[in-house]
Design a protein around this nucleic acid. Structure first.
Length: 841
RNA sequence: GCCUGGGUGGCGGAAUUGGUAUACGCGCAGGACUUAAAAUCCUGUAGCUGCAUAAGCUGUGAGGGUUCGAGUCCCUCCUCAGGCACCA
C-alpha cells in the first residue's frame, strides 16, 4: 500500500485546477453568484508569511464550502503592490520598485498557488499596473468634479522616516502606521477627500451590517459623533472708564440683562454637558484666534481693553512654548496642567457672574471650537485645572449616593448621572434631562446653538512619494487647477532613477522635468503637473469592483457585472483595517452610488469577519523580532493540506493562535489515517449506527465551517475518523462522505483519494452531502439523572419512552439514585431529552 | 478614563447558548509489535483523599447573587489582548 506523500500529488492537482479553470465562474452567466473576498496582500519580496497564509486558508475553506452548496463562487486574488509598504522594502534592498514589483509578483503568486486555494487565476488585479491605476486616477477626477476632492493648506501629519504626509487613520497612537516613527505636524498644501460629508451615513449604516462587533465599534468610535451645543460668551470690557463698577476683578457685578451687556469680543465653546451653573472659567487653546487678537496690538479688542505689557509678554511666552511642543509631548504632559490668565472676564449667562478667561494647552484648537467652559465639579480635567490655579469648584450635580457635600478631591467629581443642585430652575431634575433643558433654554435665549461634531476628519490622500498613482491634476498660471482630461489617462508613473523620498515636502517626481512640465489642457500654455502621488489606501478602496471586470478597457467596471456580483457576500480580512481600508471602501462606494456609477447598493461588504492573528513565540510576527515563520518549508515538509489543517486547528479562526510546530503531528497523523483508511473500504451497506455518525458529521462540519469555526469542524472529522478506524471495514458511502466533508479543508489529498477510489473529477465540483433528516432520528436517548443537582446515574431509553413518568420510573430503579434519595420526598424536574433532576426537600 | 473581546487540565482549546465541564489534538505515562530503535496500534491522563479500575470531595480569574441546576445570566472586582483618548 503506497504511503501518504503529499509532494507526489499536490502540485499536480494545483496545475490541473488552474488549467481546467474549475474555479473560474462565468461572470456573465452564473446563476447563483457568490462573491467571496479576502483582503489582497501587500507583497514584499520577503514573501508571504504564515500569518497571511492563515487568513487566506480560512477564507478559502469557507469559500469552498459555499461552492459545494451550489453557488457560483468567485474567489479572486490580486496584489496591493503600489504604495509605501512596497516602496519601503525597495529602499531597504536598494532596488527600483518597478523592477522589484516583477519579482514580488512572481514570488507571491507562486506562494499563493502552493496553498492550494481556489482562486480564479484568470482575473488577477495588481494596483501598480497602468490599466488599474488609470481608473484610480479616474476616480480622483470624479471626486474632483463633484467637489469631493479639494486642496488645502493645513497642519498635517508628517512621518519624518517615510518622508511623507499621512492621513489621520494612518497615525496609530502618534506613530506612523508603516514604520512606527513619531509623527510630527507640518504645514503643507495637500489634497483631501471630503469623507466628513459622509460621516453620518457611514455611522448610521453600521447598524445594518453583518460585521465583526469589534470592527463596528472601532468605526463608531473613529467617526466619533457627539451631540452638544455651541455656547457663545461675551467678553466684557475691563477698563474702569467704560464700566467703573466692574473694575479689574469684577467679582461682584450687579446682574444686568445679558442682552444689553457691553462686550469687547465673543468666545464660543462646545460642550456635550452644559452644567452651566457650575461653569466658573473659560479656557481657550493657545492657537485660538482670540489669543492671536490679544497679542496683536492692532486688533480691535486691544483698543477696547486694558492690558499691561508684562501680561502680554507672559501670554506670548506661554503660547510660544505650547505651540513648540509636539502632539506627543502635549499628551505626555497631559496630567500637569499649565496655563495663563488673560485678566479678562466673560459673563456666565445663567449666574450673571463674570468668570475668568484662561489660556491652556490642555484645550486643543482642532477639537470642538478650540475653547471650553470650565465646570470643575463635573469634569476631571477642569477639576485638575481649577485645583492648580485656585478657581472655585461648585457642586451642581449630586453624587452617586445623593451627596451634596463640597467637591474637594478628584474622587468627588461627578461627570454624569445624579440630580441637579444649586442650579436654580433645574434643581431636582435628573442630569440627562437637565442637559436637554439647558440646551433648550440656551437656544431659546439665543445664547447657543445645538451642534453635532465628529472625530472623523477629511481623508488626506497626497503622498510625497514615488511608488503610487500620480494625482491627475495640472496647475496653470492662467486657468488655475485643471484636472487631467479623461482621455489623457492614465498619467503614467515615469521611471525615475532616484525614487527615494526627498524629505523636503515634495515627491521625487518633482525632480523630473519631463514629467511635470506639461501644456495646460485648457489654454495650451506651459503648466505644471501635480507631482504627489495618491495614498495606497485609495488603490485598495475599490479593487473589488475591478475584479469583476478585469478585461474591460473603457470603464473601471461593467455595470452589469457589478450588479450581478456586488456587494461582496463575505469579506474576510484583518481587524487592523477597521478604520482604514474598511472605512475608505465604504466611503467610496457611497460616493459611487451618489454619482450614479452604481445603482443598487451603497455598502460594499454585506458580511465581514475579522480573522485572528497568528503569533509566534508569544509575540506578533515581525521582522525586527525575527520570529517570522515562512510557510514554504512547512509546505515542502508536511504538504499544504497538513499546514492548512494545522493552522485552522489552532483555535477559532476569529481569534488566531500561537504557531508552535510541535503540534503539527496531529493533523499529519489525521491525514495519514484518512489515506490509509481507504484500504478498509468494503462494498457493504452502512448500519444505523454508521448512518448516525455520518449524518452528525455532515451536519456539524457544515455548520461549523459556515460559522468559520474550522477548529471544531476538524475535531468532528477526527472523532468520526476514530469511529471509522475502530470498525473492521468502512462502506464506500462513508468514505466518500468523509472525503467530501474534508475537501474544503484539505483540497489536495481529497482530490487524490477521490480519483484513487475511481470517482469522477473533480471532488471540488460535487455538492455537499445531504441526508433526509428523519432517517437518523435517534432511537436510543441517554438521559443523565441528578439527585440534588449531582449526576448519579445515566439511563438509556428508547425514543418512544420519554414521558416524565417513564423516565422517573426508570431512574428510580438505579441503585445510586435510590441511595442518594434516602427515601426522602422529592420534587421532579425533567427537561425532555436533556436531564432529570430529583430534588429532595 | 471609555469601548470591544478574552481568562476553562501540563499546553492549544471544546461545551448543542441555563442541563453529564474538560470534546478533539499536543504532551506525558503504561502496554503491544520489534533483537533493538523509529514508525504504528491499544490503554490511561483535571486536582485532592484512598491499596483501589471502591467511594467521595473540590473544581471553568476572585467574591457575592438568581436558579432544582451557572463556564454560560445579574452585581462588584482583578487581569490579558486590541481600539479610542486632555474629544470638552
Amino acid at each position: 500500500m503506497p504511503k501518504y506523500q503529499p509532494e507526489q500529488f499536490e502540485k499536480k492537482w494545483q496545475e490541473k485546477w488552474k488549467q481546467d479553470q474549475i474555479f473560474s465562474p462565468d461572470l456573465d452567466k452564473a446563476k447563483k453568484p457568490y462573491f467571496a473576498l479576502m483582503m489582497f496582500p501587500y507583497p514584499s519580496a520577503e514573501g508571504l508569511h504564515v500569518g497571511n497564509m492563515y487568513a487566506f486558508t480560512g477564507a478559502d475553506i469557507f469559500t469552498r464550502y459555499i461552492r459545494m452548496q451550489g453557488y457560483d463562487v468567485f474567489e479572486p486574488i490580486g496584489l496591493d503592490g503600489f504604495g509605501i509598504h512596497s516602496e519601503n522594502y525597495a529602499i531597504k534592498v536598494n532596488q527600483h520598485p518597478s523592477k522589484l514589483s516583477k519579482v514580488t509578483e512572481e514570488r507571491f503568486y507562486k506562494q499563493l498557488m502552493a496553498l492550494g486555494n481556489a482562486f480564479d487565476w484568470t482575473r488577477t488585479v495588481e494596483t501598480y499596473k497602468p490599466d488599474y491605476y488609470k481608473w484610480t486616477q479616474w476616480i480622483f477626477l470624479k471626486m474632483y468634479e463633484n467637489g469631493l476632492a479639494y486642496r488645502k493648506k493645513a497642519e498635517v501629519n508628517w512621518c519624518p522616516s517615510c518622508k511623507t504626509v499621512l492621513a489621520d487613520e494612518q497615525v496609530i497612537a502618534g506613530k506612523c502606521e508603516r514604520c512606527s516613527s513619531d509623527v510630527v505636524e507640518k504645514m503643507l498644501e495637500q489634497w483631501f477627500f471630503k469623507i466628513t460629508n459622509y460621516a453620518d451615513r457611514l455611522l448610521k449604516n453600521l447598524n445594518s451590517l453583518d460585521w465583526s462587533e469589534k470592527v463596528l465599534t472601532a468605526q463608531r468610535n473613529w467617526i466619533g459623533k457627539k451631540e452638544g451645543i455651541n455656547i457663545t460668551y461675551k467678553v466684557i470690557p475691563n477698563n474702569r472708564e467704560s464700566h467703573p463698577s466692574q473694575a479689574r476683578v469684577p467679582s461682584k457685578v450687579k446682574k444686568i440683562p445679558y442682552a444689553s451687556l457691553d462686550f469687547v469680543d465673543e468666545i464660543t465653546v462646545f460642550t456635550t454637558t452644559p452644567v452651566n451653573f457650575g461653569a466658573t472659567f473659560l479656557v481657550v487653546a493657545p492657537e485660538h484666534p482670540f489669543v492671536q487678537n490679544i497679542l496683536n496690538p492692532e486688533s480691535e479688542i486691544r483698543n477696547k481693553i486694558e492690558i499691561q505689557y508684562a501680561k502680554i509678554n507672559e501670554i506670548k511666552k506661554y503660547v510660544e512654548e505650547a505651540t513648540k511642543k509636539t502632539e506627543e509631548q502635549r499628551k505626555n504632559e497631559a496630567q500637569k496642567k499649565t496655563g495663563v490668565f488673560t485678566e479678562l472676564y466673560a459673563i456666565n449667562h445663567v449666574s450673571g457672574k463674570p468668570i475668568p478667561i484662561w489660556i491652556s494647552d490642555f484645550v486643543l484648537v482642532n477639537v470642538g471650537t478650540g475653547a471650553i467652559q470650565g465646570c470643575p465639579g463635573h469634569d476631571y480635567r477642569d477639576f485638575d485645572f481649577a485645583k492648580k490655579f485656585g478657581l472655585p469648584i461648585p457642586r451642581v450635580v449630586t453624587g452617586a449616593n445623593g451627596e451634596k457635600t463640597p467637591i474637594e478631591k478628584r474622587e468627588d467629581v461627578v461627570e454624569h448621572g445624579g440630580v441637579m443642585v444649586n442650579s436654580d430652575f433645574l434643581n431636582g431634575i435628573p442630569f440627562e434631562k437637565a442637559m436637554q433643558m439647558t440646551m433648550d433654554y440656551f437656544e431659546k435665549n439665543g445664547w447657543g446653538k445645538r451642534v453635532v461634531t465628529y472625530h472623523l476628519r477629511d481623508w488626506l490622500i497626497s503622498r510625497q512619494r514615488y511608488w503610487g498613482p500620480p494625482i491627475p491634476i495640472i496647475y496653470c498660471d492662467t486657468c488655475g487647477t485643471v484636472p487631467v482630461p479623461e482621455i489623457d489617462l492614465p498619467v503614467v508613473l515615469p521611471y525615475v532613477e532616484n525614487f527615494r523620498p526627498t524629505g523636503i515636502g515634495v515627491s521625487p517626481l518633482a525632480s523630473s522635468e519631463k514629467f511635470y512640465k506639461v501644456d495646460c489642457p485648457k489654454c495650451g500654455q506651459e503648466a505644471k503637473r501635480e507631482t504627489d502621488v495618491s495614498d495606497t489606501f485609495l488603490d485598495s478602496a475599490w479593487y473589488f469592483f475591478r475584479y469583476t471586470s478585469t478585461e474591460e478597457v473603457d470603464s473601471p467596471w461593467m455595470l452589469e457585472r457589478v450588479k450581478k456580483w456586488l456587494p461582496v457576500n463575505t469579506y474576510i480580512g484583518g481587524a487592523e483595517h477597521s478604520v482604514l481600508h474598511l472605512l475608505y471602501s465604504r466611503f467610496l462606494t457611497m460616493v459611487f452610488k451618489d454619482l450614479d456609477l452604481i445603482s443598487h447598493f451603497e455598502e460594499p461588504f454585506a458580511r465581514f469577519r475579522a480573522h485572528g492573528l497568528i503569533i509566534s513565540e508569544g509575540a506578533k510576527m515581525s521582522k525586527s523580532k525575527g520570529n517570522i515563520v515562512n510557510p514554504d518549508a512547512y509546505i515542502s515538509e508536511y504538504g499544504a493540506d497538513c499546514l492548512r489543517l494545522y493552522l485552522m486547528f489552532l483555535g477559532p479562526f476569529e481569534q488566531g493562535g500561537d504557531f508552535r510546530d510541535e503540534a503539527i503531528s496531529g493533523p499529519q497523523n489525521f491525514l495519514r489515517r484518512v489515506w490509509d483508511l481507504k484500504e478498509k473500504i468494503k462494498d457493504l451497506a452502512p448500519s444505523e449506527e454508521d448512518k448516525k455518525w455520518m449524518y452528525k458529521a455532515v451536519e456539524k462540519v457544515g455548520r461549523d465551517i459556515s460559522n468559520l469555526k474550522f477548529n471544531t469542524s476538524i475535531a468532528k472529522l477526527m472523532e468520526w475518523l476514530n469511529y471509522l478506524s475502530r470498525k473492521k471495514s468502512v462502506t464506500k458511502d462513508e468514505y466518500k462522505t468523509l472525503l467530501l466533508l474534508l475537501a474544503p479543508l484539505a483540497p489536495h489529498v481529497t482530490e487524490e483519494l477521490w480519483s484513487q477510489i475511481g470517482e469522477e473529477y473533480s471532488i471540488h465540483q460535487k455538492p455537499w452531502p445531504s441526508f433526509a433528516k428523519k432517517s437518523f432520528v435517534e432511537e436510543i436517548v441517554t438521559i443523565p439523572v441528578q439527585v440534588n443537582g449531582k449526576v448519579r446515574a445515566v439511563i438509556s431509553l428508547s425514543a418512544d419512552q420519554l414521558s416524565e413518568k417513564e423516565v422517573v420510573g426508570k431512574a428510580l430503579k438505579e441503585e445510586k439514585v435510590k441511595k442518594y434519595l434516602e427515601k426522602k420526598k422529592y420534587k421532579v424536574i425533567y427537561v425532555k431529552r436533556k436531564i432529570l433532576n430529583l430534588v429532595t426537600s
